[in-house]
Amino acid sequence: MGGDKDGRVNLEQRDSLLFVSVVVGYEGGEVEVPSVLVDTGSATTVLSIDALAELSIQPEPGDPIRKLRGVGGVEYVFTRRLEKLSLGGVGVGEFEVEVGALDYGFEMNGILGLDFLVEVGAIIDLRRLVLHFDSD
């Protein structure tokens, strides 16, 4: 597991947006996913299927499929319960995310949504550009 175990990560600024790296654990494997947008305007958390390729995550017959309807048309994702989703060495186990294509034309491997940020009690410090939370 990468990062210091103090639940603190730097926010990277790109395209005037904020990104972090997260660690995903699934079926015994772990992968670091960089360039995940921190987005309190997203109710849910979504990760790119390409970024999770090493973990062999693919749609399974029983996975709920969700439809996202927006200004650019529609898009479909499937949902999957991860064994771990963490950043800065601290995070939650058993967290459900959406997995999708994320073909939006700019580099982004996922969106860390309000569901995760609330669950960990994230504090987004925009003066120091860090995201931190208590591990207990």
């Binding site: 395209d15 947006l17 029983g62 499929i65 969700r66 439809k67 996202l68 927006g70 200004v71």
Partner: peptide, 24 residues
């Protein structure tokens, strides 16, 4: 869309997606 015929009913949860605004 992609789907498996295991699902007895083709009923999906729909969410609104209004997008991300990038800066330069």
């Amino acid at each position: 869309m992609f789907v498996h015929t295991h699902q007895p009913e083709l009923r999906l949860e729909e969410r609104r997606w209004v997008g991300i605004r990038t800066g330069v």
